[in-house]
Amino acid sequence: MERDTTGEGLGRLSRRAYLAAAGGAAVALSGCLVRGEAGERGLEGRVVVDGSNTLLPHGAAVAEEFQWRNNRVQIPVRGSGTGAGFQRFCSGDTDFQNASREIVEDEEAICGDNDVEYLELETALDGVAIWVHPDNHWCDTLTVEEIHRLWRSGSDVETWGDLREEWADEPWGDESISLYGRDPASGTFDYFTQAINGEVGNIRSDYSASADTNVIVRGVRGDRYALGFGGAGYYYENEDELKLVAVDDDNDGVRPTRETIESGEYTPLSRAMLLYVSVPALARPEVRAFAEFYFEEIDDDADDSVVEGDETLTWTQWAARRVGFYGIPDETVEAGREKLAEAIETVEEEPQ
């Protein structure tokens, strides 16, 4: 069956479009993919995915491609947030958990109480970006120390002049900095506060917090003196309405791009995005096949606009680039593939 791979069809959505389709909560792709193929293995069933709102588009893109090739498998992908998603995953309510941070001790305990053994896999790379209003002509680079002083709990930085002494006598020096960022239920919040302030949850209380990065984007683009943080992909979807700030980690300032994130040059705000797989659920053929699909090479039906030269991508690398993240290294792909194969060997396959 022919399929549109030009990027114009229903199934080819940007990160923003995936989130719009989600209504902020879920992408129920099984309801959209009324075509496709049953697949040689005749897989059927339901696979449930929840977790990070940031990583939602990546999981949705992989699920879309899998369902096209196995149209009797339904995969609703939700983005309840990393913390809320772990509550469901560790209670045994979901099969896969997208996470923008590692599982924490309290969540591990819930998994243990419910006999949910899990597998942690890296599936994408992301950078947390700092952005300001496009009319902000003075702030091109901030040091890690300046970002720390601005965002730490108990910060006394109120104006642009407070942030950098040389700005104090400028016309904008007395202007208050309006701050926008992710809320405490977000894995992005956890990562940012740990990387910048040395402790998860260490952040000033007087900023506008949101569970939706698009709200942060709108807040900054509507205020000349604002500053916010969020996934780098959101900046690249709004380049005309935001200005990207370089982060100086004793390296003269680096902006998050595919090259600087995939090479590890953008520090300390590059991070691995994670997928947690329920090991008991791997006994179901449809769950096992979907997990393996992440690390299989893309086929000729894949949109090749994100493929550079003669490189060979797996579905997780392809989906990462497709929706504004960045691909994990090939050695990480191989490590994940081996880790998954070992876990699959430990479970007894359920008959279809």
Score class of each variant (00 low, 15 high):
Asp113His: 09
Ser278Val: 12
Tyr191Ala: 08
Val48Pro: 03
Ala283Pro: 08
Val220Met: 07
Cys32Met: 06
Tyr207Cys: 05
Val34Ala: 10
Asp301Ala: 00
Ile216Asp: 05
Gly39Lys: 11
Ala129Met: 02
Leu142Gln: 02
Tyr266Phe: 15
Arg258Thr: 11
Gly11Phe: 14
Pro329Gln: 07
Glu334Met: 10
Val157Gln: 09
Val245Phe: 02
Val116Cys: 02
Trp151Ala: 04
Val49Arg: 03
Arg288Asn: 11
Gly112Lys: 14
Ala22His: 03
Pro268His: 11
Thr123Cys: 12
Pro256Glu: 02
Arg224Lys: 12
Gln194Tyr: 12
Leu142Thr: 04
Asn98His: 12
Arg35Ser: 04
Tyr276Val: 01
Trp315Thr: 01
Glu296Lys: 06
Thr188Phe: 06
Gly23His: 06
Leu142Tyr: 03
Val254Trp: 02
Ser270Cys: 09
Glu145Ile: 01
Asp156Thr: 15
Gly233Ala: 08
Asp4Ser: 12
Ala320Glu: 00
Met273Pro: 01
Leu56Cys: 03
Tyr276Asp: 13
Arg41Tyr: 01
Phe295Ser: 04
Arg152Ile: 13
Tyr294Asp: 09
Ala226Gln: 09
Leu29Asp: 07
Val104Met: 12
Asp300Ile: 01
Phe293Asn: 08
Val323Tyr: 05
Glu108Lys: 14
Asn202Thr: 08
Ser153Cys: 04
Thr312Leu: 05
Glu311Trp: 08
Gly198Met: 10
Leu275His: 01
Arg3Val: 13
Glu237Arg: 01
Asp252Lys: 09
Gly181Leu: 10
Gly81Tyr: 05
Arg271Thr: 11
Arg321Gln: 03
Asp113Arg: 15
Leu56Gln: 05
Arg15Cys: 04
Ala272Asn: 12
Ala341Gly: 06
Arg218Val: 03
Thr123Asp: 04
Glu65Gln: 09
Asp303Gln: 01
Asp106Leu: 09
Lys339Asp: 05
Glu165His: 07
Ser178Cys: 04
Tyr276Glu: 13
Arg3Gly: 03
Val27Glu: 00
Val287Phe: 10
Asp162Leu: 00
Thr94Lys: 13
Asn251Gly: 04
Phe192His: 11
Asn114Pro: 11
Gln97Arg: 10
Asp106Gly: 10
Glu107Lys: 12
Phe192Tyr: 14
Val128His: 02
Ile147Trp: 01
Leu13Met: 15
Glu342Arg: 13
Val62Tyr: 02
Ala26Leu: 01
Gly24Leu: 05
Ala246Tyr: 08
Arg41Leu: 15
Asp330Lys: 03
Thr346Ala: 06
Gly127His: 02
Asp304Ile: 00
Glu2Trp: 02
Ser14Glu: 08
Gly42His: 03
Ala61Cys: 12
Glu286Lys: 09
Asp162His: 14
Pro57Cys: 03
Val104Leu: 12
Arg152Glu: 15
Phe89Ser: 06
Ile177Lys: 06
Thr82Leu: 07
Gly23Met: 06
Val47Pro: 01
Glu165Ala: 14
Thr193Phe: 08
Ser91Lys: 13
Glu158Asn: 02
Ala25Asp: 06
Val215Gln: 12
Pro280Val: 10
Gly31Pro: 01
Gly324Val: 04
Glu108Ala: 15
Tyr118Phe: 15
Gly219Trp: 09
Ser91Pro: 01
Cys90Val: 12
Asn251Ser: 13
Ser305Gly: 03
Leu119Asp: 05
Pro171Ser: 11
Gly161Arg: 02
Ala129Val: 00
Ala168Ser: 15
Ser210His: 14
Ala226Ser: 13
Thr267Val: 14
Val220Ile: 13
Asp140Thr: 07
Asn197Val: 13
Glu296Ala: 08
Ala22Ser: 14
Ile298Met: 02
